[in-house]
Nucleic acid binder design. Structure first.
Lengths: 249, 249
DNA sequence: GCAAAAGTGTTACCGGTACACCCATGC
DNA sequence: GCATGGGTGTACCGGTAACACTTTTGC
């Protein structure tokens, strides 16, 4: 993390980084650990979202991109601001006060944080630890994990936003590799929304969307009949957007 | 405005206060005027949204409620956070720098602002001027008025959010008096979305919504057949929410 | 040959849309 | 009596939902 910039003490950004492993939805969490310097006893050990304070001369959106790149190495990623959290007691837990004290970076006790969520194709991402451990966790687990600060509330809101948005905007593809099978796409929708979907109806609907285009290749290395692959064509999507006004995905 | 609190220099809240006059959608704007102290010549004269910095010991949401109450006297109003604006150049115009200098209240040049929109029944509201003039403007006009700072962008985003949300949540009623006619409701939807709606289909749909309940009173003092009045029953709405999952309004 | 997932059609129902005329009231 | 908005019904179309079996491949 670049520390040559001055940051705003009262404003941070937290990124909810979502990924999909073809089975369930996952989220990136960063371990927060503090051992008593005298006894060596672990006093704090829990998880936070990927976040940092915003620099004085940095656009808000860029702060989110910076954090994302810093943790995943990725650029040109789907990233969307979804809410800002500003209760006075969002740093209320004992652990949180202690943490701010021991890291001693000049962050204020009163911090508003702007939440962004990122959708990434996690099949080929390597996460960067820097000084703290970082890893993927199933979203369902993360929601019961008692995260630092108000990060559980932030995660819940990010998930709600994603669930809503996926019904009207073609953002699910951001979580898949360039080529995907219809079953993978269906599993993704099911993982996000929690509903189960009828296979035949799902395929019928997707196959008549002109921007979901079949490829000549087939799936490879699977112990069963290989599935046809598709990709999402954004150009076709944009061109046909008006005709489809009001349709859901 | 209460100045005994210390505020955060880098964070403000701006409220987009929407109202409806049974014809079109309106928004509250505050005049910003500065006359050259020597010549008396008017140097700045334009409009801003209703906003202020957030106090150190104040929840973010409460800052928005405070601003709203300060300008309208109203409490228990529909108020929703919709986005946060944090470009480094959002105070880039010459007028904006000058303004911050002449009002000299200790606001920073780098300010992130959190946007809220409010929906109020404007039929019986009296706006409070304090030291600057304040008034309702048609949203369509306001969008072409070259507002202060990035307030046009904020207004546009608020409007987009309202347009979207009104399709899936029962928030339109917040802009009407307790009792309203179906024609008023239809005009409101048309004013928000810009679409024209078929009268018979609209009424058919609304009449079968159990939470839009008829009253015994009729409209009064109109030079034509008086219309039946209705009100929105939030309890019935909440009770039947699950059955109607996925329905639009 | 068997396990595992891919792939495929038909029918019924419901909600949305298009469309034109008579009614009640104030003046 | 006339101007003004209030109020009503029907027919068609398209999208959604329910539902079960055959096919292809790897091992």
């Amino acid at each position: 993390m670049d520390l040559t910039h001055k940051f705003l003490a009262n404003v941070s950004v937290d990124c909810v980084i979502f990924g999909f492993d073809f089975e369930k939805l996952n989220v990136v969490l960063v371990e927060r650990e503090y051992d008593d310097p005298a006894t060596g006893e672990t006093i704090i050990r829990d998880y936070t979202l990927a976040g940092y304070h915003i620099f004085e001369d940095e656009d808000l959106d860029n702060a989110a991109y910076r954090i994302l790149k810093d943790r995943t190495g990725l650029e040109n990623i789907y990233l969307e601001q979804f809410a800002t959290f500003g209760k006075t007691d969002r740093v209320a837990k004992e652990m949180d006060h202690l943490w701010l004290k021991v890291i001693d970076k000049g962050f204020a006790d009163r911090v508003l944080t702007v939440g962004y969520f990122a959708l990434i194709d996690s099949t080929k991402v390597k996460l960067f630890s820097h000084d703290s451990k970082i890893d993927w966790f199933p979203v369902d687990d993360a929601l019961t994990m008692d995260l630092a600060f108000d990060h559980q509330e932030i995660l819940q809101k990010a998930l709600d936003t994603l669930r809503n948005k996926v019904r009207t905007e073609p953002i699910a593809f951001e979580l898949l590799p360039e080529c995907f099978t219809l079953t993978q796409l269906q599993n993704l929708y099911q993982a996000i929304t929690g509903n189960i979907i009828d296979k035949r109806n799902f395929r019928k609907k997707k196959l008549q969307m002109p921007f979901i285009v079949p490829r000549t290749e087939k799936q490879d290395g699977v112990a069963h009949r290989p599935a046809r692959l598709f990709h999402f064509d954004r150009n076709i999507f944009e061109q046909t957007r008006n005709e489809r006004f009001g349709n859901l995905f």
